[in-house]
Amino acid sequence: MSSIERSERRTAFAFVAPALLWTLAFFLVPFGAMVLLSLAHLEGREIVQAYDLGNYIKIFTDPSLLKGIFVSLEITMTVTVISVLLAWPLAWIIATQVPARYQRLAIMLAVLPFWTSYVVRSYAWALVLGQNGVLMQWLIGIGLLDAPIQIMATRAATIIGFVHFFVMLLTLTIYANLIQLSPNYARAAADLGASGWQTLRLVILPLTLPGIMTGAFLTFVLCIGDYITPQILGGNNELSMPQLIMLQLGRRGDFPMASALSVVLMALVTLAYAATARWLKMDRV
């Protein structure tokens, strides 16, 4: 290696070092500390390091904890599927049916509620879905309902709140994918005799798979780790994993158990990544 190259590398490394050190000190080391803590136990009010898997065994044997994993997975999967199904047509309509000069406006409008505060967004849905809320009053007003039905503090409310957010996110990723496709794909398919539906199903849909999968993975990560939405909208009738973690931290002060639950949560995200990575790598020309 020449001395010029060596000094260039030294400079480059000096540039990268601060960010690396920060990530090491405040991300990797804390994560390690958390994993260590998950191997400890709460005895009385003292945390005692035991280096055993007691907390993990408890998570998978205690029905109230195990249920949290399933609640979280069910909610996350439902949200992801519904959001993709709602967002794809929206992104497609904006990308292909809306005149080009209004597209930017349409997309900005479609994600406008992003700019409300995240806590406030869930609160706003609580206003809409409550017993005396706008939705019930309206449904009773037009004669569809005689009396309000319970949506707040159910899983349905959590799912609605989540879907609202993730439809916006997925619309963005799928739209970004759609507009970078050459219009010639659709032209070529039509030219070779494909109907509009065939073009959509055989050509456009497969080509947006990377956008869908990227969005679905993001949805999974953000949804399964979110505490606010299930807490405000879903209430305490069934607890998702983040709610369980916060419960351990708050009322019980069981830090080791909260850490173990977090490690399990992390493992679920890693599994989701492994499942979608194959698609995220989808070849493009």
């Binding site: 994560f31 990560v221 780790g225």
Partner: peptide, 20 residues
């Protein structure tokens, strides 16, 4: 390594820092 925190839930990052 630099990108990794993006794929981790904020809750886990918070809990890690709290442990530390």
């Amino acid at each position: 390594l630099l990108i990794a925190p993006m794929t981790v839930s904020y809750l886990i990052i918070a809990l890690g820092l709290l442990s530390l």
